[in-house]
Write a protein that binds this DNA or RNA. Sequence first.
DNA 1: TCCATATTGACACCATAGTGTCAATTTTAG
DNA 2: CTAAAATTGACACTATGGTGTCAATATGGA
Lengths: 157, 157
Amino acid sequence: MSRIRSNPLIQLVDEVARLQGRIGSLFGAVHAQSGLRPMEDLVLNAIVEADTPPTVPQIGRSLGHPRQVIQRAVNTLLTDGFLERLPNPDHKRAPLFALTAKGERLKEHTDRMALEIADGFLQQDDPERCKRLVGELRELRKSLEAFARDTRPGDTQ
Amino acid sequence: MSRIRSNPLIQLVDEVARLQGRIGSLFGAVHAQSGLRPMEDLVLNAIVEADTPPTVPQIGRSLGHPRQVIQRAVNTLLTDGFLERLPNPDHKRAPLFALTAKGERLKEHTDRMALEIADGFLQQDDPERCKRLVGELRELRKSLEAFARDTRPGDTQ
DNA sequence: TCCATATTGACACCATAGTGTCAATTTTAG
DNA sequence: CTAAAATTGACACTATGGTGTCAATATGGA
């Protein structure tokens, strides 16, 4: 048994799950006050960090979540005025999405709240470690995405 | 805005969320076949990795999830025969929990499935990186737990 | 021992995410 | 240009996790 659990990736999956739980209970207050659902916040971040305004399916792939779930979040964000539709020159049916000014303000607000908590922690902990980890985790994620693409090609529906 | 998002811990939170999504869509098949809910799997792992059979509230704290949620998972695992109650010398009402033989077999099975996927990935990727990351993430989590304890002392209910 | 307090287990209810499916539209191949 | 295939948006339904609350019991101090 412990032979099996000693696989590095298995351990990593478990550790990420625990870290996620810990993070959730630490930053939970942010979502509570902003009125954003966790998935909506995730979607906003994905859009902010995308090089160029993405389509719904693109966001889905980038986050590893089904497009239907993203669609729902995007629709809510649209009706709340945090997102706006942009015409997509490459595809007539799938518009691109970008934050409105209101969306930017919201994000700034939630980020500021999160920042307060984060700063508290980083005072007692080494910020360099977090910085280093972000890079390494991003690399790993890219690697996992590439692997997923190779293993099972297109999974649209 | 990007000034705010440049905080290392904020970035880390975001990256962990993405990684979690990616992992979920990669290992989702495992949960699907085992019949375990994600939270139940998490609880089993927490029990396996605990130094000594834990109580429900202890599992909750170790995972960063409310004890009620853990209780529900434990109850299901009990009725399914994957867990057994052990008397707790230190507390008459809160029993300790350990895997039954059936539970061990189940875990072995799910781990084996996960291992197949993991091995596929680790063939094209460096296992050392994962190993290193596990250690660093665990350290960070411990640090976050300590911080949470200091910030708001006891949150039982 | 007895009482106040804390902990625990249980349960109902709510919030959120995941899945299956369909029609509409668009893209692509012939 | 036409037809087949793929993509997209929408929606209902299901699954799962989170929260509030209560009674029961245990613990620790007077």
